[in-house]
Write a protein that binds this DNA or RNA. Structure first.
Lengths: 169, 169
DNA sequence: CGTGAAAATACTTCCCT
DNA sequence: AGGGAAGTATTTTCACG
């Protein structure tokens, strides 16, 4: 949170991030073995990554389908004037909403939701109706969820200086 | 994966799921203390939840902004005929893609991506261009990410049974 | 920053209820 | 299914390079 040294991550840090993204419950012992460090050093690295706000949290993932929420969908919301979901009702009133983003463009919000049935989805749509127009798309398959963030960026180098500030790499 | 007993979860199971979704690195000792169970019993419960496919994995979360990926966006893809991203190039060729879903409706895919800059996003758009038309929306704020799945469903009652076969459980 | 060693915790297995 | 106790492993602290 505070201003930090912002040291660039070395390859050991990246190994740690990789392993912990794949299995957050690894012991420091085992993690240290995998990255080539003793367990105290490993614990210290992890502590610093947390303090730097790079490792933000550790979460077990629950399969919605197995707990009675077999239908997942994205709902795009274009908020009605003066009734934006961000300002009026907070999304916490809707337990079906797992994620909520504010987006550029025509729609002010994108919601990811999990519900027990299509009727339940329809009911949710109706409850959301007062916040504005919606476009709902059901997820028909999760091709890729939670890809690991791995290594620093694909070359941001190669920026031939141009006079267009938005000009790409 | 196999056919299961499918016992409904009791309130202790839900407490465990809640705590582990919030902190996947909790020790069985501490977890047991929080849910009112000894550590062997707790470990056994967790093992069963994993075996039932309810707890699918444990992942550390990395803040993209802190590792040089300050721009996140959703890209809707309408695949060109015969060039669907699911069939031809697998999404793994694009390290920027963190999540990928197949959706009902006009667009065949929704991608969540993280990139180093707007030029980088533009470059990605161009590389994806051959797979079909795109609509890109930048995430301007993460209002809610990874809401915890908590308790069985919000009342699925109030659904008068109908004779429509698509009416889900 | 890293390590090794010792003390404090935590985990696992086994048996009993 | 859950609890207790014993043996093993892991975490944490600390002195030192």
């Amino acid at each position: 949170m505070t201003l930090r040294s912002e040291k660039p991550l070395d390859s050991t840090d990246w190994k740690i991030l990789r392993e912990l993204q794949r299995d957050a419950r690894l012991s420091f012992n085992e993690l240290g073995r995998r990255v080539g460090l003793s367990s105290p050093s490993t614990a210290e690295r992890v502590r610093r990554l947390e303090e730097a706000g790079i490792l933000t949290d550790y979460g077990a993932r629950v399969e919605p389908t197995r707990v009675g929420l077999p239908v997942q969908a994205f709902i795009q919301l274009r908020c009605a004037p003066g009734m934006c979901l961000f300002k009026t009702g907070s999304a916490e009133q809707f337990p079906e909403v797992l994620e909520m983003y504010k987006l550029s463009g025509n729609h002010c919000a994108l919601l990811k939701v999990a519900v027990s049935s299509l009727p339940h989805l329809e009911a949710l749509n109706e409850r959301l109706g007062r916040y504005g127009e919606q476009i709902t798309n059901i997820i028909t398959s999760n091709v890729l969820t939670h890809r690991i963030i791995d290594q620093e960026q694909p070359e941001m180098d190669a920026h031939p200086p141009t006079n267009q500030s938005w000009n790409v790499q």
